[in-house]
Structures are given as C-alpha cells and as structure tokens.
Write a protein that binds this DNA or RNA. Structure first.
Length: 312
DNA sequence: ATTTTGTCCTGCGAGC
DNA sequence: TGCTCGCAGGACAAAA
C-alpha cells in the first residue's frame, strides 16, 4: 500500500525519466482511473480531454505532498513560438496546470520501452520524447483502480503551488515547511483516537495504515488513545516516531508486501522486514514477547502490542 | 461543525 | 473440484 515512503520512492524513480520530457502520446486504457474513488461517473469525453491536455506538453518536474504526486506542465518552447503568433516574446510562464497522480491502493508507475509486453493491469500510458535520448513509456498500472490520474489547476496551499485537488492536504513530515509542534496541537484539539488523527490527511499527510501502526508502537501509544487527554509530549513523540519510521522506510526503498507496490523497474522495497507490528498479528512483540494483537476498528486492521501500548 | 461510516475495486485464499 | 465469502485500504461523499 503506497504511503509516503513508497510514493516518494516512485517520485524519485520517475523523476530522472520524466523531468524535461515531452508527452508525445497518451493512451487511456481504462477511463475509470480518471475518476476519484467516490466519483466513478466518467464523462465519455474525459479520456480525449485529458489526452488533449497532455499531448505536446513538457513535464517540468515531479512533486509530492503526502501520498499525492503531480507533474507541472509547461508548453514546449517550439509550441509557444507557434502559438503566440507575432506576440511579444514573453518569459516562460510558470506552470499553471499539472498532471496529478494518486497511486491509491495498488497503483504503480513503470518505465518501459514501447515494445515491452503490456502488464495486465495497465490503465494508462504516457509516451515520452526526450531530447537526445531514446523514447520511453511511463505506464500507470493499477490492479484495484483506486488510483487516479487527472489534470488540475495549480493553486497556492501551505506556502506551495499544488493542484487544486491537493490543496486541502496537510504538509507531510518530509516537507521543509512541516511544523510538528503545530501538528501536535491540532491533533490534541481533535475529539478522536490517536490512530484516526494520524490517518487524517488534512492534519498530517502521508501516513497510512502501516505507518500509523508502526509509529504508535514505536511511541508506545494505543491506537484508540483519546487525542484530547493524551499529553502533548506523547503526541510529539508519536509524530517524531512517525517521521523516523517513514524516513527509515524510505532509506530502504519502502514496504513491499506483495507485487502491489514495486519501484519503477519492478523491484521491491525492503522495509517489510523492519515492520514491528503491521502484519504480525499473533507473533511475539519484539520488545516483550507478548503476542501482537490484530483488531478491526474504523473498518481497518490495527496491530499493536497489548502490553507495550497500554489501553486508554 | 466535526466525526464516523459506507463505497469504490480486484485478486486471492480460506472454508465448505 | 468449484463456489462463496471475507479481506486488503485511500479518499471522499454521505450520514450521524
């Protein structure tokens, strides 16, 4: 399940290939990836519209906030020259639109040559033309179609330019502008459990079910500990552990449980072997040997040590 | 207003 | 053997 470390791994993975490339071909194989998880009504003309928006554009960079990625678009220099017929020579305008990407549960970006065999769950293909280098394809593969592709206006949010669809997402712990103290106070102001707060992408972004469980274990805090009565120092610790565990994971290329998360070249990350509680229900706690408990609440599995993480 | 619940989707494995 | 059922969970609309 791609969370911050996995998405950042993918961002770094495609950056070298995508940055500065020109989109010369777009194929939408399954239009459902153009919708959101809650809006599956795809206008019939949506694929053609996205294709028109992207074709001929240059991908300026690859950005990320939390689990969201986007690639700001700009007109290629030759396009600009022919487009502004006889107009004043203006400086390259800052990108106003971006290709926005969410990997959902099972989304992957894979770098391929166009002759490579097609993966069964390929949902979209961007053909990339790169000055002086061979053509390649960026393929969006997504088994469960929780992922999303779209083109969106760039707007200002938390001191950065992000797609409108990302503007409500909070800064993540790897963002230079991230403020852990402010985040801790916001969490304490909520009336909910600690795990719910960590998963609220408008409070802190990038944390999903795996790293929420791992951070709470590392901080010795129960997932259902009420935010309001948890001491601010404990909340600070949880945030520090969340950041630490995600940085560790990133250094190991992220967590790969199965073939659902892989790098752009198809290789897996190695953080799974470092997980302390997630996926370890019934196995002994690495600190106290007590069997790790797996319980379902919030419609999700939560994994924790009943001894190390005292009940609220 | 804020918090919780339900929904989307596919493949796989357990159980009968 | 073949079927059904449950499970995996990110984000968001809807309900509470």
């Amino acid at each position: 399940m791609p969370e911050l470390p996995e998405v950042e791994s993918v961002r770094r993975g495609i950056q070298a290939w995508a940055q500065g490339a020109r989109v010369d071909r777009v194929r939408i194989l399954d239009p459902r990836i153009l919708g959101t998880t809650s809006n599956r009504l795809i206008a019939p003309e949506a694929p053609a519209r996205l294709t028109a928006e992207l074709t001929g554009r240059e991908l300026a960079s690859v950005e990320r906030r939390g689990k969201f990625m986007w690639l700001p678009l700009r007109h290629c220099s030759d396009d600009t020259a022919s487009g502004s017929a006889g107009g004043d020579a203006v400086a390259e305008p800052s990108p106003a639109r971006a290709l926005s990407v969410h990997l959902g549960m099972s989304g992957q970006f894979r770098v391929h040559e166009s002759t490579d065999p097609m993966h069964r769950h390929t949902r979209a293909i961007l053909g990339l033309e790169r000055a002086g280098r061979e053509r390649l394809e960026l393929r969006f593969v997504d088994q469960r179609i929780f992922g999303h592709l779209g083109v969106d206006d760039l707007v200002d949010s938390h001191g950065a330019s992000v797609p409108r669809s990302v503007s409500h997402i909070a800064l993540d712990p790897l963002d230079p502008l991230y403020d852990p103290e402010r985040t801790a106070r916001r969490i304490q102001a909520k009336r909910t459990g600690m795990k719910s707060a960590l998963l609220d992408q408008t409070v802190i972004s990038g944390i999903g079910n795996i790293y929420a469980d791992e951070a709470l274990f590392a901080a010795r805090v129960h997932p259902l500990a009420p935010t309001q009565t948890t001491r601010i120092s404990r909340i600070r610790t949880v945030l520090a552990k969340a950041e630490a565990v995600m940085r560790d994971s990133l250094a190991q290329g992220g967590t790969s449980f199965d073939a659902l998360y892989v790098h752009v070249n198809g290789e897996s990350g190695y953080f799974e072997r470092s997980l302390q509680v997630y996926g370890r229900g019934g196995l002994p706690c690495n600190r106290c040997e007590t069997p790790i408990v797996r319980e379902r609440f919030m419609n999700r599995s939560s994994h924790f040590c009943p001894v190390c993480q005292r009940k609220p």
